[in-house]
């Protein structure tokens, strides 16, 4: 019985992230529109978009290969699996040990690798430019992300997400300078990875500076639906990660009853909705950057995270 209950809890989390992701995207879009004095789309619009795209015929270029057709599913699967392995309402779920923080970051890299290849498959200028810039951003963001991982795991003594969340709640962590610094770095990395302003603009087409949208320009129909769903999942994933690493209060630890799960769920949903509101506030305050200013933005994240690591090496008390 116990194993079935645990399996159900893990399955719940898988379905939860999938179900919530378009809603979170809807909240950011709606709130951003309100900030710009527009009415904005309804909160459920992303669900309708994905539904609509799924039922449309997929138009593919003549030269598109099997790689092009299978990438959307691989991207979706890798993002979904990564998102489902991050503790949301409870720590220590059945499969939480199968990937630690480093493996989750690497799973996202798998999806990115496939998508960058798919961008080059048809042989268009836009696809190539998107792939090229995506890899540039990745090579700037990954070292910063690894230093964030290093700092968090130095504080918690582990790279297991469940154990980190439990340590942040129960351990005497308190307010730390290093954690504050890496929170800053993490937000920068998350903005870059999710193709948000000021790195990329998710709402445009036909801009010479676009990155992610250029890469997926040729996609349509059900394939595009998968890519849009994966993008929504990735945003939710980074929100969950931020919540799990830095603000895990309210999450169910140890107590595996339905009530504890429900409380954890309530906390989780309100926290990520809050983040979905905060993101557009930041986005409307700044302008999109030129491509060759990315190193300054992400280099800042890297420097901040490096400072945190060195502070920790000086003394574990920071």
């Amino acid at each position: 019985m116990a194993i079935i209950y645990e399996l159900a809890a893990q399955g719940m989390q898988m379905i939860l992230v999938l179900a919530v992701a378009p809603f979170i995207l809807g909240v950011t879009r709606r709130f951003k529109a309100r900030l710009l004095r527009r009415i904005g789309p309804p909160l459920l619009q992303p669900y309708r978009d994905i539904w609509k795209l799924m039922h449309k015929e997929a138009v593919m270029a003549h030269g598109a290969s099997w790689l092009y057709r299978s990438t959307p599913y691989l991207l979706f699967a890798s993002t979904w699996v990564a998102a489902a392995l991050i503790p949301t309402y409870s720590t220590g779920l059945l499969f939480s040990w199968s990937a630690d923080l480093i493996a989750i970051v690497a799973l996202l890299a798998t999806g990115r690798f496939a998508l960058a290849l798919a961008g080059m498959d048809v042989g268009t200028a836009f696809g190539g430019i998107g792939s090229s810039r995506e890899m540039l951003i990745a090579s700037l963001a990954e070292p910063a992300m690894l230093l964030v991982v290093l700092t968090v795991s130095l504080v918690a003594g582990t790279t297991q997400l469940s154990a980190i969340a439990e340590h942040m709640i129960h351990g005497s962590v308190g307010l730390r300078v290093s954690l504050g610094l890496v929170l800053f770095a993490f937000v920068f990395v998350a903005i870059a990875e999710n193709a948000r302003i000021p790195i990329d603009n998710p709402a445009t087409h036909l801009e010479l500076t676009m990155v992610h949208e250029a890469m997926v320009l040729e996609y349509s129909g059900r394939h595009l639906a998968m890519i849009e769903a994966a993008a929504a999942l990735k945003l939710t994933l980074y929100f969950s990660l931020l919540v799990c690493l830095f603000f895990p209060f309210g999450i169910a630890t140890g107590d595996k009853s339905i009530v504890a799960f429900a409380i954890g769920l309530g906390f989780y949903l309100s926290k990520i909705t809050l983040l979905a509101v905060l993101l557009p506030i930041g986005e409307t305050a700044v302008a999109k950057m030129r491509v060759f200013r990315y190193p300054i933005f992400l280099g800042g994240a890297f420097a901040t995270a490096a400072l945190a690591v060195f502070l920790l090496f000086v003394s574990q008390g920071f």
């Binding site: 799924m54 997929a58 138009v59 270029a61 048809v122 268009t124 836009f126």
Partner: peptide
């Protein structure tokens, strides 16, 4: 949903 697929020239943002 659908498995309909059509082949056509590539789009490249309208300027192939």
């Amino acid at each position: 949903a659908t498995r309909a697929t059509r082949r056509s020239a590539f789009w490249d943002c309208g300027y192939p």
